[in-house]
């Protein structure tokens, strides 16, 4: 099972948000499963084409994903996925 950890900033919009253990072979698959548990969250992370929003970052095992457009980066068993907003501003 992959584990998704979300930035705490998302708690404002999804108060029940917590770490999620889900199965899936790609980043896109597990994000879809997060959507089924937290309806609407995809719209916060991805644009209407399913690409990662410009100021969002997704890490797998500490590395930024490569495919920000279609989220095809593959996942290994028990990989940890971190979803953070990019730092910006002063």
């Amino acid at each position: 099972m992959a584990k998704i950890k979300f930035t705490a900033a998302l708690k404002r919009f999804f108060p029940d948000l917590e770490e999620l253990n889900v199965s899936g072979t790609t980043v896109g698959e597990v994000i879809k499963k997060a959507e089924s548990k937290y309806p609407g969250i995809c719209n916060y992370l991805l644009d209407e084409r399913g690409a990662v929003r410009r100021h969002m970052n997704i890490f797998v095992k500490g590395e930024l994903i490569e495919d920000r457009k279609t989220l095809k980066d593959r996942l290994g068993k028990d990989d940890e996925i971190l979803i953070f907003q990019a730092l910006s501003g002063g």
């Binding site: 900033a9 919009f13 609407g40 719209n43 916060y44 992370l45 644009d47 209407e48 084409r49 929003r53 100021h55 969002m56 907003q85 990019a86 910006s88």
Partner: peptide, 28 residues
């Protein structure tokens, strides 16, 4: 939103409560 994209909310009770709806989306 800087990070989360454009969002759209409405209120039918003059701001006592708000609901979020999906904003317009461009076709693929």
């Amino acid at each position: 939103h800087h990070h989360w994209g454009q969002k759209l909310h409405f209120s039918t009770d003059e701001g006592q409560t708000w609901q979020e709806v999906n904003p317009p989306a461009y076709p693929l």
